[in-house]
Design a protein around this nucleic acid. Sequence first.
DNA 1: GGGTATTTTGCAACTTGTTGCATAATGAAG
DNA 2: CTTCATTATGCAACAAGTTGCAAAATACCC
Lengths: 179, 179
Amino acid sequence: MSLPHAILTALLEKPSSGLELTRRFDRSIGYFWSATHQQIYRELGKLEKAGLIRALDRDVPTRGQKKEYEVLPSGREELERWVGVREDPRDPRDPLLLRLRATGVVGVGGDMVDELRRHRALHQERLAEYREFERRDAARGNGTERDRVHRLVLQGGIDLELFWVTWLDRALADLEDTG
Amino acid sequence: MSLPHAILTALLEKPSSGLELTRRFDRSIGYFWSATHQQIYRELGKLEKAGLIRALDRDVPTRGQKKEYEVLPSGREELERWVGVREDPRDPRDPLLLRLRATGVVGVGGDMVDELRRHRALHQERLAEYREFERRDAARGNGTERDRVHRLVLQGGIDLELFWVTWLDRALADLEDTG
DNA sequence: GGGTATTTTGCAACTTGTTGCATAATGAAG
DNA sequence: CTTCATTATGCAACAAGTTGCAAAATACCC
């Protein structure tokens, strides 16, 4: 039940159409919680029907027409309720760890070492990207609570990528040693 | 498409019934990829129909009767194929990061600080649990490739929990400072 | 102004994951 | 020998996420 709330957050930050939301997801919230445009349109429909958001420019019910949404008071209340909810952390659900574990029974091919190297490179790239965001954020203001929270979340992303790079280095050193 | 392969891995390590698998998931693979018993039974059915596993003790088609499964050669081949697949890392999909971000628009209540503290405690517990596994593994053998790979995966779990504890400390320090 | 590409919204079908409940065997208690 | 908890398997309905495609508006090109 996180996607609708991610959308409410994004719409509160700035009212948008479905496609705009999709694009914004691709370069911010989506780093932590990705969503396809179909998911987003479906959720927008549900949120509108539930009276949590509404379309500006009413009377544009047709396809192909841009439709901007804004959050209604009840939507904001729902978001406030949601941030107060207690929810335990979930499993990481990362297929790479599973695949590595599977090599315990079918053997570590050179393929897996290549794959770990490839992942290392991807995480390194993502890390560089985050650091670029960080650099830009530092230049801009940092007074508001919103800025501070964004910086914390970004820091989380950075630390997470650092975890991956470090662990993958360890794993590669181990596997290349005797594998 | 990871659950069936997680099941194949577990069954190769040791043939089991559905319920045994569920229990084994709860205390090993499930830390990284959890699954309910219903998911597992459904997948076992599919895997059997696809000819990748088979039930020992044939002729026990009734409910309430224990049914043990083992992996067939084609199942092993499928698992070998899968470990060789290239698959990019996915987003972390952690609701806590989203909820924290949402506080950027609806405000950080003391509730969120409590929630971060609670998560910190949970990750700390999980970390202690992993370290206990590590201690036990170190005592046992460590020669086989399987042991080494298991140790790497466990190390990943430990490092991941360390990331959380460290990041949560940072976030708490920041929020308690001025929040 | 007719064709072609782009933007924007959306449907339908499928897979994966969750929740609640039903059913059968088994063993222990009284 | 019946009742009750436990073990074990499973169905059904739903929610969330994915994939492929369709269709309406708009803009641009010749």
